[in-house]
């Protein structure tokens, strides 16, 4: 049994009287395809925020490869290989697609503090950004301002920025949320083509996607882990069906 890549122990977070995360023991293995599901307000985004270091837990620990990173800030966790996307786009809206990715690549390569060489002359950063856009089929939009893109393409840029960080752990918070169904295949294709060595945690409400994509599923209800297992186990679990799948599964 190998040590999990990312692990939480009794992770708890409250907002005032509300227990948004309660005693969560969660593990994500290297190269995993792991889905996190649960009704609205179950605390999925809060868990991602805790894993990414956006907020700190009230109690409990987050471990990366066995090392306690509970006190490590958001930016440093990115350097340790944890990247995430946001449920609601957080893009550099006034900048071009290329610049959006450039900022992330430059940060990862440690180029960002450099002051005296023009950004455009850093061909290493530019090439890598262009290559990434290529793999996501965003090349044609590279020069366009993000705010001008259709929402589906913007979601793709959201993903591109996270991938530009070469993460070992990728946390995807409802990557296709808000994308019209006609465009959603772009996102789903991109997710299917993610490099296998990246451990992916995906939150989504689309059960078809979840059951097709995931090797493991964790169900959260009211801040706590309700069930965890293979898609087959989860799909067969009568309690899960009762509290969750029964209400939201489509068809």
């Amino acid at each position: 049994m190998t040590a999990p890549l990312l692990e939480t122990r009794a992770l708890t977070r409250n907002f005032g009287a509300l227990l948004a995360t309660r005693e969560v023991d969660f593990r994500l293995d290297a190269g995993a395809r792991h889905a996190l599901i649960g009704p609205n307000g179950a605390g999925k985004t809060t868990l991602v925020n805790l894993l990414a270091g956006v907020i700190s837990p009230t109690r409990g620990q987050v471990l990366l490869k066995g090392r306690d990173i509970t006190g490590v800030g958001q930016a440093e966790r990115v350097k340790l290989g944890i990247a995430r996307t946001f449920q609601i786009n957080r893009l550099f809206r006034g900048l071009s697609v290329l610049e959006n990715v450039y900022i992330a690549v430059a940060e990862r390569m440690g180029v960002a503090p450099s002051m005296f060489r023009p950004a455009g002359r850093r061909t290493d950063v530019v090439n890598e950004s262009m290559h990434l856009l290529d793999t996501l089929r965003l090349t044609a939009d590279a020069g366009r301002r993000v705010s001008e893109l259709p929402y589906g393409r913007q979601r793709l840029v959201e993903l591109a920025i996270a991938l530009a960080l070469s993460p070992e752990v990728l946390l995807l918070d409802e990557p296709a949320a808000g994308v019209p169904s006609a465009e959603s295949h772009i996102i789903l294709d991109a997710i299917d083509r993610l490099p296998p060595e990246i451990a992916v945690l995906i939150i989504d409400h689309d059960m078809d996607l979840v059951f097709r994509f995931a090797q493991r599923i964790t169900v959260m209800v009211s801040g706590a882990v309700f069930a965890s297992g293979t898609p087959r186990e989860i799909g067969a679990d009568p309690e899960v069906r009762a509290v969750y799948l029964g209400q939201t599964a489509r068809g």
């Binding site: 550099f92 430059a106 940060e107 960002a112 503090p113 002051m115 950004a119 950063v125």
Partner: peptide, 9 residues
């Protein structure tokens, strides 16, 4: 125009 400036934007 440097990467630093880009990160400021």
């Amino acid at each position: 125009y440097s990467p630093f400036g880009q990160s400021l934007t």
